[in-house]
Simulated assay, not measured.
Amino acid sequence: MSELKLRVRANEALTPNIRTLELEAADGSALPGFSAGAHIRVVLPDGSDRHYSLVNAETDPGATDAPDHYRLGVRLEEDSKGGSRFMHGLKAGDIIETSAPRNDFALVDAQAPVLLIAGGIGVTPLISMAAERKAKDRPFSFHYAGRSRTLLAFVDALEAIETTALTIHCDDEPETCIDLKALIGKAPAEGHIYVCGPRGMIEAVREIAHARGIAKDHVHFELFEAHEAEAGDKSFEVEISSTGQVFTIPPGKSIIEVLEEEGVDLIYDCQRGDCGICQTSVLSGIPDHRDVILTDDERATNDVMQICVSRAKSDRLVLDL
């Protein structure tokens, strides 16, 4: 996966638990270009990787074609398994290995207004989107929510892009608390909505937009957090319809993890339940849906599931694999 060697140019604290890192090519060359919403995957010391959105906020057309640096925003997670703690500990001059930029959360180049909704560190992929909309003189509004103003990073970067498009919402300021139903209710039906933040925020936006009749392909989201095991999870069986093979999925392991260990060839990406690439038809059984892709109506049919995070309510699932 490693394609680039990058040198840390700066590592600066923005809030008590969020730092911004600037990375440049170790050999001093220009970096691969990227589009708004893109991320890079950073290789950790144990060989695993984590993905971080590019927060470059230049509003000059072409500024992201061959940038001289990448900017990231990293929140230190209390239960970090190494990713955010490693990133927070980097110093100027350190060399890391990363992938080239990749975009699973691309911004549609539409004339219609775009509504950007961020919750906490979910602001990071939306900053470059705001910069691109400004650069192209396309209409957008940006709503940024968090627990307190002191915990919100990159507000200065957003204000530099377009102050009049930005609204800050804070839980400890009741008069500013975000009202998603009212916000989406005012959004033009032909526009696009981009949301990144906690799972609950994404699910709420998805359902409100669905109830309002906004087309599903006009609601875009990215989820940073992986779905954790839940209390009461139990083993269940998965049957592969094409071969009749049956596998047991224990608590703490996903369907993808078990099937891959047994040599089943699968197509997937995010493993967080937000990209839809692993969506699989369910021929029998009742899934326990834990993704943010499907609407409540779609979940109720139990016809498909995201096998990276979802489990089973029935003892066995028969999947169209």
Rank of each mutant, 00 (worst) to 15 (best):
P32G: 09
H88K: 03
G93R: 11
G213R: 08
Y144F: 14
H51M: 12
H39R: 11
G62L: 00
A10L: 04
Q306N: 12
D79Y: 10
T163S: 15
S310T: 04
R71T: 10
G89M: 04
L294R: 07
E298P: 00
K91P: 00
I40M: 02
A10Y: 07
V43F: 10
I286G: 03
A63C: 06
A66G: 08
M305P: 00
A187T: 09
S29V: 05
K234L: 11
F224P: 00
D288M: 02
G93M: 00
H51P: 06
P174A: 13
Q306P: 01
H192E: 11
L166P: 04
P113W: 05
D288H: 10
S99E: 10
N302C: 12
G200S: 13
P45E: 07
F140A: 05
G62R: 07
L223C: 05
R147A: 08
K216S: 15
E257P: 02
P188K: 06
H39E: 06
V309D: 09
G252Y: 11
L72I: 01
E298I: 03
R7F: 00
F86R: 08
P67Y: 02
A26E: 12
R85I: 13
E159T: 13
S29I: 05
M305C: 10
K91Y: 11
N302S: 15
A204W: 00
E207D: 13
D320P: 07
D46R: 09
E77S: 14
L4C: 08
R9M: 11
D233W: 08
T20V: 09
R199I: 08
V74I: 09
V258H: 04
